[in-house]
């Protein structure tokens, strides 16, 4: 087939990627095609880590940080240093690259918080809220709402999305040249510790599994140049094709009160319809300039 004048041969379109849900590679490609206008700005100029599921979500997957050698000539790439190793990475800056990447069954699109051209300058701070054993996404929602209030006290606007799995991600856009991972990591760590101190039964800032039981772990260590986050609107590789999707705070507040964790899982079809009616709720993340003054 041809996308934007570029030739692309697609393969195994009928392959079941989400077998128990009857979602094939063709469905995957169709999903990404329809939401491409919304996801591309968030992928643009960021070193993509591919997470490929060639035999579907129930079989093995593999991470690929390097851009495959057999890439078409029009795929944009960047040279980055990862753990002191030079490597060529893919930049998903256009529809044809997105389709090509999805043809490789890279269901999940993981990107760093910084762009490839300025790998040490995070555009945002992220609080990765991860429920421990016996905790769920509703607990994450409670923590996210406290976090929103705390950040807003500090005059920082924040935005939440579902991880598409069990957790939530809260982002604070910065979009400033002066930002450093050192600052954002320090900031997120102290925030996590303050929350832990104030809500010891609900929050932990510690990675250790045992300290996470019944609690929400605020993974502040994601604020690092070597880490990646699941891109907003990316599919997740679970049984069902769920999506990492933004929720406005009012909705999150409402859903948290309703107490049904399932409602916090946005599926592919809902993602498409919401995007087509409400647009990109994460747009501000790319433009809003904010400063952590301390």
């Amino acid at each position: 087939m041809e996308v934007a004048g570029k030739r692309l041969s697609l393969s195994n379109l009928r392959k079941d990627i989400y077998p128990s849900y009857g979602f094939t590679k063709a469905h995957v490609l169709e999903y990404y095609r329809r939401i491409s206008n919304f996801i591309l700005p968030h992928l643009k100029d960021r070193a993509l880590t591919l997470k490929r599921y060639p035999d579907g979500t129930e079989k093995d997957f593999f991470f690929e940080k390097r851009c495959p050698e057999h890439r078409p000539p029009w795929v944009k790439t960047a040279e980055v240093l990862h753990n002191e190793e030079r490597m060529t990475v893919c930049l998903v800056n256009d529809l044809e690259t997105l389709i090509w990447v999805e043809n490789l069954a890279s269901l999940e699109l993981h990107v760093p918080l910084a762009r490839a051209g300025s790998p040490e300058t995070p555009d945002s701070i992220v609080f990765d809220l991860d429920p421990g054993d016996q905790a769920n996404i509703l607990d994450c929602a409670m923590v996210a709402l406290i976090l929103r209030d705390l950040l807003s006290q500090m005059r920082l606007a924040s935005y939440a999305k579902t991880s598409g799995k069990k957790g939530l991600h809260v982002y604070v856009p910065l979009n400033r040249k002066e930002a450093t991972f050192e600052d954002t990591k320090r900031f997120s760590k102290v925030v996590a510790e303050v929350l832990q101190r104030n809500y010891p039964d609900l929050v932990t800032a510690k990675m250790a599994k045992e300290s996470r039981i019944k609690k929400v772990f605020i993974n502040w260590s994601q604020n690092d140049s070597s880490k990646t986050m699941i891109c907003v609107y990316s599919l997740r590789a679970r049984e069902k094709p769920s999506v990492s999707f933004p929720l406005v705070w009012e909705e999150l507040d409402m859903l948290a009160k309703q107490g049904d964790p399932e409602k916090l899982l946005i599926m592919h079809s809902e993602a498409v319809s919401r995007l087509e009616t409400k647009g990109d709720l994460f747009q501000e993340l790319l433009t809003k300039k904010q400063k952590i003054t301390i």
Binding site: L150, M154, E193, V194, I294
Partner: peptide, 10 residues
């Protein structure tokens, strides 16, 4: 100071 500010905000 960061902690102080955060605790006050909290």
């Amino acid at each position: 100071d960061l902690v102080a500010v955060l605790e006050e905000s909290m």
